[in-house]
Design a protein around this nucleic acid. Structure first.
Lengths: 225, 225
DNA sequence: ACCTGAACACCGTTCAAGT
DNA sequence: ACCTGAACACCGTTCAAGT
């Protein structure tokens, strides 16, 4: 019985990504650095280069993990193709939920390389197939898919950037001078009233409303082909 | 006649932003650093701190300049409010044009602080006012505005990240191994055919199609209120 | 095979000191 | 008022050397 020379490695790729996501949640994207990540794993920074080509390799895997952990790697098409609209709405809501489950999740996933975050491709492929079956030609099925996904990117990135009106209004309240002083005071007043209105909703409701509008628009685009 | 002691300063804020935009176009966002910017202005990096509070102050002003240079600081409402849909379409197209006029323009403007890039606020305020006049209540006018703008953010960020199918397909062609190898080969084949289709359009056409769908959806949302 | 130590070429930012 | 020089606390990455 020969003894194996191989020792268990100090770090494993999955553990690295898990630690990276913990740093992401606790300290934000700008603080997930190789040095901080290495420290959390009780290892020196260059050790990461044995397991990953470079930093974007790690962030791409983070994006993949974010989507996979949310169960988005196993998408099933709708049983009845006539329900493609509510199916799409649920899928895009799930996508947003996956992104908002982690601090800066929008920037992480939207910034990922297409080829490495393969769950993203699965989403694109599945959605396009469904839309094609729903009546779009292949080109417009893919454009419609991009339209919905781009909306999710934009919404979540703004949401997580602290552009939510709650955050904005509190910034206005905290700062002594008016941050929108360069505009006319009439515009300022209107903006404030917009924000006040906006505060009555939740980000989720706003997202759902916009998503519903987009899907309604896509639906009417089918008939015009 | 007294001689003034004031000498002309070595750098002026507008010149700084102009130089910053030149670096942005030539070398991308990750290369507009304070040191590089200072070097271009024949000055040392700390000198910038006399004119700007910090780096985000500079990038916010860049965002403002990008929008202003595109003429977006002087928006006029539609003569006939019934044309709000084509008015909105033109405005969002202008917004995308402003962003794509500079490398990484999407990330610069979408990442800007609301209060400092005040042209962005003008766009939001103007659009919301128009949509309110078009028949939305104030809350949904502002949600609709965000929906359209978030789509622009998402589309342009993906576009400028090199996610355009042209770029993706060439990446597939250049890399020896298939970058989507982790998925089923059936999905790969479908994805390739999607990209092939997509290559027949231009980003502008895809953007316009998606934007039209969104506006159509918004239009039908008015009636349901 | 897997990791360390040391170095390289950068960052943004602060601050005393110069003019 | 406006800018420099020097420093601080970081970055990602490379690479010889250790085990």
């Amino acid at each position: 019985m020969k003894t194996r020379k191989t020792k268990t490695p100090h770090i494993q790729p999955e553990a690295v990504i898990k630690a990276a996501l913990e740093i992401l949640d606790a300290e934000g994207l700008e603080n997930v650095t190789l040095r901080r990540l290495a420290a959390k794993l009780n290892v020196q920074a260059p050790a990461l280069y044995w397991h990953f080509k470079d930093k974007s390799d790690i962030t791409d895997d983070m994006a993949q993990a974010i989507l996979k952990n949310a169960g988005l790697d196993s998408i099933t098409p709708p049983e009845d193709i006539n329900n493609w609209d509510s199916w799409l709405k649920d899928l895009m809501s799930s996508l947003r939920n996956a992104l908002t489950a982690h601090r800066d999740g929008g920037r992480v996933v939207a910034g990922a390389t297409f080829g490495r975050a393969y769950t993203l491709e699965k989403i694109v492929v599945s959605t396009t197939k469904v839309l094609e079956k729903a009546g779009f030609d292949r080109l417009h099925a893919s454009i419609a898919t991009s339209t919905a996904i781009d909306y999710v990117w934009g919404f979540v990135i703004e949401e997580q950037a602290g552009m939510a009106p709650q955050a904005f209004l509190s910034a206005v309240a905290q700062s002594g001078e008016n941050p929108v002083i360069q505009n006319t005071s009439e515009d300022d007043a209107y903006l404030t009233s917009i924000m006040d209105e906006y505060c009555k909703t939740t980000p989720t409701k706003a997202f759902d409303w916009g998503l519903q509008a987009i899907i309604t628009g896509l639906k009417s685009a089918i008939n015009k082909e």
